[in-house]
Amino acid sequence: MDEEIWERVRSVVASIPPGRVLSYGDVAELAGIRSPRLVGRILGEDSADLPWFRVLRASGTTAEHLRHRQLELLRAEGVLADGGKVDMRRYRWSG
């Protein structure tokens, strides 16, 4: 994988402020790449020092295996979920 792409994705995720979220597609667009799945792959492999929990599916939902922890971290920043779903219109960061 291209190291420049990797770093652009990491930079976008690092820039999401507390209390705001982006979708995988939003991150891809801001990083100048076409694939939201690539964003997921990068975060899956290299996100320990990033606010990974601020990146959600476009629907405002989380992956099942991350749901409890991700929603807990978001709630601590004031991002509330209704039925496990974050209102993307309300909390999306406009970068």
Rank of each mutant, 00 (worst) to 15 (best):
E3D: 09
E4C: 02
I5R: 14
I5L: 11
I5E: 12
I5N: 12
E7S: 15
R8I: 04
R8V: 06
V9G: 06
R10L: 11
S11Q: 13
V13A: 09
A14Q: 14
S15N: 14
S15M: 05
P17E: 04
P18G: 03
G19V: 13
R20L: 09
R20V: 12
R20G: 10
R20P: 07
S23M: 10
S23V: 06
Y24D: 02
G25V: 12
D26V: 13
V27D: 06
V27Y: 13
V27C: 12
A28L: 08
A28R: 01
A31H: 11
I33T: 10
I33H: 11
R34C: 08
S35T: 13
S35H: 14
P36I: 06
P36S: 07
R37V: 13
L38M: 15
G40F: 09
G40E: 08
R41A: 14
I42Q: 02
G44K: 04
E45H: 13
S47R: 10
A48T: 10
L50H: 05
R54M: 06
R54V: 04
R54Q: 12
R54D: 04
L56Y: 09
R57K: 15
A58H: 08
A58P: 00
S59E: 14
E64V: 09
H65E: 05
E72L: 11
L73H: 11
L74Q: 01
L74V: 02
L74N: 00
R75S: 08
G78Q: 10
A81L: 00
D82K: 13
D82V: 10
G84E: 04
V86H: 01
D87F: 01
D87W: 02
R90Q: 08
Y91D: 04
R92C: 00
W93V: 02
